[in-house]
Design a protein around this nucleic acid. Structure first.
Lengths: 368, 368
DNA sequence: GTCACATCGGAAATCCATTTCACTTGACCG
DNA sequence: CGGTCAAGTGAAATGGATTTCCGATGTGAC
């Protein structure tokens, strides 16, 4: 299969040679005009331009790729699940930064749970000029190897590799903000809901691991018992896990989730039980667009996804234009965004609220 | 600018010629092995395979593109806004259908409001083997022209073009379901919140236009006054518009939104005012993942995004493999999903609910 | 032992844009 | 007015995989 007969009946696009013929000049001249290269008289420029428009000519990227660039930047990631993921923010930032640059952004999605190493390989096959990778499950070895062929920026992981750049947010600082907030409010039993650690990749420091570490450190520092729960990286799995947690003999008064998608799953479990933020405060991480919606109103840590995307593009462009070779590692400062899903812990006797009426008590949306 | 010096220092990937040398055979032979083409002895197959693995060879897509295929399917759309858009469902369906086929799916995002004609052009430049377009603002003329070079499937629009295929859902039927539901519940003042119609494209029948038409027809048929409001295609704009609507002298008892993102904006405005589904019922269209979340619980019309994506891939593969030329137009049947955001209209005196406590009254999630 | 035929492998042409290099202009200077 | 130099142009090589075509080899039949 995958062996289709050559598509017959399709129209042939005009080639550079066609333009050259039409204009009565050499191919080299046409090429120069297209690339706005040096050594073209205004007359020539005009003549060629006219032929290009007359024929509707556009250079084929494939042919260009043989000799150099494809003017394509790719971003690879798993397909986002619920909500407007961190990933989408990054993509938006990257796309915005690339507008008008002549580069086309493409997204190469990996199916959830499929792993995206083969997607990265396939991008290298396509000779994109740069790759922005949001990959938790690709080994440093693989990334190192691929980085020999194309500039790569890795998002999120705190590895500090030699051959490619990274953009991260200061996850430790972010967790300190979140935990500080909950501790100040007076919470003692704070659980941490995060994703199952993936297969150990030597030297890889994924964001969730750092968040968990920092959580544990903070708990111990305040003489409290860390309580970590693992879920799959989906809202549904977080929901299931949170259900078990909330039905516990002695449920926590606060849940700090490793990211907003998980937090929203926890929120669902809480809502279903008619709990309010006084019963169980929930704090996430990412500040996805949905978190700000009043129906959700999730306290969370903003890690500036769009800025991350922009920074990644800048790093790639540096490598492409100036062929920089020393790695750069950009770290952004996160910000706490306090919303309705966190409050002081209430009295310990259960306040029952009409089912389906989880609602954030104080409706403030301040940040600090 | 955009004229970077050729990236120095980058490693060269092994080429087919390198493999041929290493194995001591001709390039043609290697090519055949790679493509699993006819006329290769097991010995040859093995020998070449070994060299390929030894060198870590992978064929360059760019070079392949000169002679035929790129094994790439592209899907073009504006970057999704809030929630897990219809677009994401389509993408998921398409990606799933393509797994194991040897084809790589790429997404080419257009910046919101930028129009995606130039994105489509750029995909043709990249000689992808097929394009799935979710484009509201590209003219039929343009699509017709591009379809001469590459198979295209247009999603959503009810045009019935000659040169490319379409996958749509039966929007008229969907609206009848939604309106039937509201009318049965006893609503009389039903407003329709939809997106501003884009610049007139001759012959283009975008889904929102059809939904609006059907809404109007249904209202008139029941002796009611249609009331249509326009917003930009964003949650925020829908929120703004819904606010005005709800603060009206005589607000509607139900809002039928042109899609779920708009509905969620309306929901926000309602929530903010402490209204419940009895005060104002809200019905959307798309059944995005978020609509099923109990914090949102939106009654909506499911238009089977994933199935749409799968169908689109199938149509493309047909065109690629069998070079079918007659157009096919697939129309899927939508389904009403009743959730908490719709109920019978309540008494006309305002029931005030604690601010921030919009909550869907009956928590059923049945469908029919 | 010979002929017909199928199978396999190699050489070379092809796809298209870029780039090098040698060449032709024309202008300008002394 | 011959010579120098810069600017502009064209021919040809290049990059990598596919495909066609032809020749070489091997198989089986008679």
């Amino acid at each position: 299969m995958a062996q289709p007969s050559s598509p017959t009946g399709r129209k042939k696009r005009p080639s550079l040679a066609d333009v050259a013929n039409h204009a009565g000049v050499s191919q080299g001249a046409v090429s120069k005009v297209i690339r706005k290269a040096y050594g073209v008289s205004p007359t020539m420029q005009q003549r060629v331009q006219q032929s290009i428009e007359a024929l509707g000519y556009r250079p084929r990227t494939g042919a260009r790729s043989l000799r150099g660039q494809t003017f394509t930047i790719a971003i690879s990631s798993e397909i986002p699940q619920i909500g407007n993921d961190f990933f989408t923010q990054v993509t938006n930032g990257a796309a915005r930064r690339l507008t008008g640059s002549g580069y086309q952004l493409i997204i190469a999605p990996a199916l959830a749970g499929e792993g995206d190493q083969h997607v990265l390989e396939s991008l290298v096959d396509r000779e994109v000029d740069g790759i922005i990778a949001i990959s938790l499950d690709v080994s440093r070895t693989t990334l190192d190897r691929l980085a020999e062929y194309v500039p790569i920026v890795l998002i999120g992981r705190h590895d500090e590799p030699q051959n490619y750049d990274t953009v991260t947010n200061d996850d430790a600082a972010g967790v300190m903000l979140a935990m500080g907030h909950l501790l100040e409010l007076g919470h003692k039993r704070i659980a941490h809901l995060t994703v199952k650690p993936t297969a150990d990749l030597p030297g890889s420091r994924p964001p969730h691991a750092i968040r968990q570490e920092t959580y544990e450190t903070q708990m111990l520092k305040h003489g409290l018992h860390p309580h970590v729960l693992y879920a799959d990286a989906s809202e549904a799995s977080a929901y299931d896990t949170a259900r078990l947690l909330l039905d516990d003999q002695e449920p926590p008064t606060a849940i700090f989730a490793g990211n907003d998608t998980l937090a929203i799953g926890a929120l669902r479990a809480a809502a279903e039980r008619g709990l309010t933020a006084r019963d169980v405060s929930i704090v996430g991480y990412d500040n996805i667009e949905l978190a700000g919606h009043p129906l959700v109103s999730l306290t969370t840590v903003d890690q500036y996804g769009a800025t991350t995307g922009e920074a990644a593009v800048d790093l790639l462009m540096e490598r492409i234009a100036e062929s920089r070779t020393e790695p750069r590692h950009v770290k952004l400062d996160p910000k706490l965004v306090v919303r309705g899903s966190s409050s002081e812990p209430g009295m310990s006797d259960k306040r029952y609220v009409e089912p389906g009426r989880f609602s954030p008590s104080p409706r403030l949306t301040q940040s600090r």
